[in-house]
Design a protein around this nucleic acid. Structure first.
Lengths: 156, 156
DNA sequence: TCACATTTAATTGTTCGCAATTGAATGTAC
DNA sequence: GTACATTCAATTGCGAACAATTAAATGTGA
């Protein structure tokens, strides 16, 4: 009987941290968050709040549910976050008259105005990425495709 | 004087949510987390706890600081997490006798044993990714390179 | 109409993640 | 060898993230 190699030493060990794409994604997400932090501090936003604002700058007066579907977040996350945005006078929460179950989220004038102040953010991120736009777009598309395959599995 | 196109309609608008690689990474990280959840529930671990166990399965009896450097996490995150792993009898926390500032984290026999039970996890993730190993490795390397460039900017 | 299911947000409780601070141990300069 | 700075983990406080539950509004079927 032969001894097997200790798996720990194999560079291809699927249990090694550095071989896991999930950790690459996880740690990259945190790295992005740290780069965004000082930029968003000036706007008075956290990163998840910035994502909500991006959604609303495209179209506002939408129910909480629409924002959640766009960002893959549920009401347990969004309700308190939106209340903080309301406290910051960036959005207004109004219960829909047509369907009293829905709460519609609309931008305030300050909320709209913040879009202009936020325009410099994406280019700062691009600079920090130290990478061509075409490379970033290609990576983004690959990551989105992977995300969508993962989400498809969850729905089973 | 001409009117400019409303930026909102441009598919290349850098302020559009779907054009941002950071959101791709952010949402992919959450998708991974949701795929991992049922697998790790059986092991009694959360995803960040699983990452700590991966580090310790490679080498244990290491200070908290080493785990933090490996995972890009600080003591504010790790201290309570490690206390929960200790409460689950997976690790033991001991203050170093050579340097009383350090707390060394060692696996218990149950902590070591869990590695075998966790061996099926990476292949389940691979299956959910619905992607060839070589493609995943290529993506992982790109994402790690991006993460490291972002982290380099933070240190400035 | 009336029972029942579905939809929608809000709520509660647990766990991350990080900034900022604290306190103890260690290292360094003079 | 005594000030001073540095290192390390722990702590506090706040904002996500999500599971599970609740409550109200709406939809559906008999």
């Amino acid at each position: 009987m032969r001894f097997s190699m200790p798996r720990k030493l194999s560079p291809l060990d699927p249990q090694r941290l550095d071989n896991q794409i999930c950790f690459a994604v996880y740690s990259a997400a945190h790295a992005f968050n740290r780069v965004y932090k000082p930029l968003l501090d000036r706007l008075g936003l956290t990163y998840p709040q910035y994502l909500v604002m991006l959604v609303l700058w495209e179209r506002d007066d939408v129910p909480v549910r629409d924002i959640g579907e766009r960002l893959f977040l549920d009401s347990g996350t969004l309700t308190p976050l939106l209340k903080r945005l309301e406290a910051a006078h960036l959005v207004k929460r109004t219960r829909s008259s047509e369907d009293e179950r829905q709460v519609l989220i609309a931008l305030t004038p300050q909320g709209h105005a913040l879009k202009e102040k936020a325009r410099a953010v994406p280019q700062s991120i691009l600079a920090a990425s130290d990478c061509s736009v075409s490379e970033l777009v290609a990576m983004k598309d690959e990551i989105v495709a992977l995300r969508d395959r993962l989400n498809a599995v969850i729905g089973e």
